[in-house]
Amino acid sequence: MRLNVNPNRMELLKLKKRIVLAHRGHKLLKDKQDELMRYFLSQLTEVKKMRKEVENDLIKAHQNILMARAISSPQIVEEALLYPSTKIEIESSFTPLMNLRLVNYRVKIGEQKLTYSLVNTSSKLDYALDFYAKLLPKMIKLAELEKNLEIIAKEITLTRRRVNALEYILIPDLKETIRYIIMKLMEIERGNLVRLMKVKEIVRKH
């Protein structure tokens, strides 16, 4: 769609500058999109693999805790887990990537203490808790990777929309408008020429 501008040389110069800028922006955005896509795909494989691992480990841990409940009774396990056995601190920081702020979680797991009675509980509870303790850093790492993928995916969508807008709307519109202004200017030029020739002819007759 042609832009609503006055067809004069000044506008033409402005539009020519804009189209150069638009091409440069398009190239940059296209490069960004390609790089984000490459990063996204490389991370995606790792995240998928990790999620599968975490899910399998979680199933095992849940089975152990269910068995611990079965052997000792649900109330005894609930009571045993009433008091947290360790202190966990999670620190988050940001890593820049192509103007994005990717999250980075760091887990500090304190010394793990036995906070329940071994008299009433089953050894299955120990295994389940050990399993969860080993699984927790992995789960947090997975959360970090998935969050970053989400951020990247959003950015890819946004960049793709920008690239498409430039490629299919702004640049064609600018081109069409420039062509229109050039045509219009040429027409004015031709009109002027005809007028001049006409004037010249009238002058010659007199």
């Binding site: 199933i59 089975q63 269910l66 068995m67 079965a70 009774s73």
Partner: peptide, 11 residues
């Protein structure tokens, strides 16, 4: 409880 937990968790 063992039996039911086992059945519910598809052991």
């Amino acid at each position: 409880r063992i039996l039911l937990c086992g059945k519910y968790s598809n052991l």
